[in-house]
């Protein structure tokens, strides 16, 4: 692992521990509370996280980071994440069958699939999932606002 990544991890863990610890101390104590209180254990957890973060930082400063392994393609990962977030935003509006079909087509296209096969695949998958989840299992997926809910 590279020095910069380890340093970022250590600093991130320290910052998170600080924020989490501050929130833990601000938790109101109820009349029903015990001696430890609702913030007691979270404070210990913040300490544990801070210990790990500080340890990684010190280790990185003293002996450096490890060698960086093969890295995933961050741009493609970010692109996929955007598609998935778009699905979450769109599903209440478009309804489940349409949204899941568009998701299937978008992911397949983004992952390198091409041609009319994508449309057939997406339509088949949307139909299969709609039948399985909504009709067979009876799960009330969003039916969407666009088409009359």
């Amino acid at each position: 692992m590279s020095r910069a990544v380890d340093a970022a991890l250590g600093a991130g863990a320290l910052a998170l521990a600080g924020a989490y610890g501050a929130m833990a101390t601000a938790i109101p104590v109820s009349m029903l509370s015990d001696a430890v209180g609702p913030g007691g254990v979270p404070l210990v957890v913040a300490g544990l996280l801070a210990f790990g973060g500080a340890g990684v930082l010190i280790k990185t400063a003293l002996v450096g980071g490890g060698t960086a392994g093969k890295q995933p393609d961050h741009q493609r990962a970010a692109g996929l994440f955007v598609i998935l977030v778009a699905y979450v935003v769109a599903v209440p509006l478009l309804g489940y069958p349409l949204a899941v079909g568009i998701l299937a087509a978008a992911v397949a296209f983004f992952a390198g699939g091409r041609g009319i096969g994508i449309v057939a695949f997406a339509a088949a998958l949307a139909g299969l999932f709609w039948f399985g989840f909504v009709k067979l299992l009876g799960i009330p997926f969003p039916s969407g606002l666009l088409f009359g809910g």
Binding site: L84, V88, L103, A108, G112, F121, A122
Partner: peptide, 12 residues
């Protein structure tokens, strides 16, 4: 690409 798409649809 189709396998990844199907798995993600299954997850969501």
């Amino acid at each position: 690409p189709y396998l990844i798409a199907a798995i993600l649809c299954l997850i969501v």
